[in-house]
Design a protein around this nucleic acid. Sequence first.
DNA 1: GGGAGCTATGAATCCGCAC
DNA 2: CGTGCGGATTCATAGCTCC
Lengths: 315, 315
Amino acid sequence: MSAPEFKAPPTIGSAAMLGDCATLLQGYPDQCVDLIVTSPPYADQRASTYGGIRPDDYVAWFLPRSEQFLRVLKPTGSFVLNIKEKAVNGERHTYVLELILALRKQGWLWTEEYIWHKKNCFPGKWPNRFRDAWERCLHFTRQRQFKMNQQAVMVPTGDWAQTRLKSLGKNDVVRYDSQVGNAFAKNIANWQGREMAYPTNVLHLATECGNKQHSAAFPLALPQWFIKLFTDEGDVVLDPFAGSGTTLQAAVELKRHAIGIDVAQEYVDMCREILAPVQGRTMEPRTPYVTQRSRKTVRPESDRCGLSQQAPGES
Amino acid sequence: MSAPEFKAPPTIGSAAMLGDCATLLQGYPDQCVDLIVTSPPYADQRASTYGGIRPDDYVAWFLPRSEQFLRVLKPTGSFVLNIKEKAVNGERHTYVLELILALRKQGWLWTEEYIWHKKNCFPGKWPNRFRDAWERCLHFTRQRQFKMNQQAVMVPTGDWAQTRLKSLGKNDVVRYDSQVGNAFAKNIANWQGREMAYPTNVLHLATECGNKQHSAAFPLALPQWFIKLFTDEGDVVLDPFAGSGTTLQAAVELKRHAIGIDVAQEYVDMCREILAPVQGRTMEPRTPYVTQRSRKTVRPESDRCGLSQQAPGES
DNA sequence: GGGAGCTATGAATCCGCAC
DNA sequence: CGTGCGGATTCATAGCTCC
């Protein structure tokens, strides 16, 4: 809405900032972001940082922030919102449904709802429900025409995976993959024709349960998939609730600019560690490069999600 | 709402009736149904049997019918609604979201949302979306305490399915199944000890296709799963939009009473064929029994969904 | 009898064209 | 310029042949 005096540099660098995105984004110009991928604090969660938004207040809390998202997003950009409503008093709360309706009123188009199927979801047992193994990835856009690189996330067809892939040795597959690099899917599509298929709107991704000190809101493969799908190299990716920086890490690995915002200094520090190797760079990295921390080698793109999203095999 | 003069017999028999459930259900007493499983006609522009309900009119069309559902359902009963919103003008329509909110106002509790992951979804390619591979199975109840037989839908754990089950031939599994009858899962549990697990709220089921003359709205395993989960033997299952009778078939196979309603004579005829073997019976069938039509042998329960819902194996 | 190969088909969606 | 119809696109699965 407001036309800020601040002008973005010709090339926005990656950065992690401390603050509330509701106010911090006001310093950003209109239409400077290609993609927003975020997993906001769920209602009643992270009480210490965001003050524990109550489910009934969630929409009112969210709208001023999404208003900024709408302003800074390019017309061809996308906004991917990973969220799942809580069960309150034995019933699913409706704040996510109400949020979708409210965002449409705000000017967003509710283009699609992707399902993230969590293959290894949290264990537990309750008398009136089973374990919750899925979350919504709501896809909002400003226009009906937007940037979508469908080829970038193609997956092997079922036949190919069940017959052709099995006939190859495992090492053959891996070696072939690494030689071709991140043009894997694209080149296969050109060479092999019908042996690659477009994925569906259901993503099969396991939650990461490794030795990370803090639980990421979603696995790296999730932002990877949307970043590949909705941006090109050099585009700008924003996570206004950056948390431990999973979205930023995915963006940096894929040679996109990454902007992260969080209200907690601890999280901003973690984001800065992720961004450290690319701070001030002009975004033309040699590959592969390695982060300073003990995170795995940052490969340009291992097509993790492409493989993981492969449809489940039958018994 | 109206207190009908018609009194249900001590044991309600299975039946398929021609008419609109909005009016036909008024002849039924309060609280005579244990479970409603249905896949209503989705909003559509085209005129079909239901006259092609427009998306904008869908909620208003639905509410008088769900009001009857609420009345005839027992307090401990469940209402499972399989539905998916259409893409209209490049955007997901919101009528399903609005329907959920409206049903809550009507008195329903939105207890859970199960996801049916369609492994073989309709093909196609569009510039702004991928193939739609999932549908909602909305679970509504009247009370926070309701009947839920979680044990009835337990599934073998991953290790078991990937080793023990695979070592058996397909015929072995089927033969074993028919010998043991609907205690299949139970006996497996006895065999294997503790290697059964509760499922999640994501169901992996393929749509049934092939040379069936009529299209079933959903695969048999879908109503099977909910019927096992939310009813006991002898309970009453209602499908107010019965269609080709998939829900009724599942109910009959599982020795539940089945009530089907549809506005199309053609569909009612199909439902009656399914119910023919059990018409007027006191619901103590020997097993296995066979339908007159060319459908497969009606086994008491093949635990199809239990196997299908097995979590996808990793690559 | 089982496995490879072929074919039909399914709650789809977008776009262009006619009216 | 809204409304409606038909064509093009696309893939996992069942069910069938044919060795």
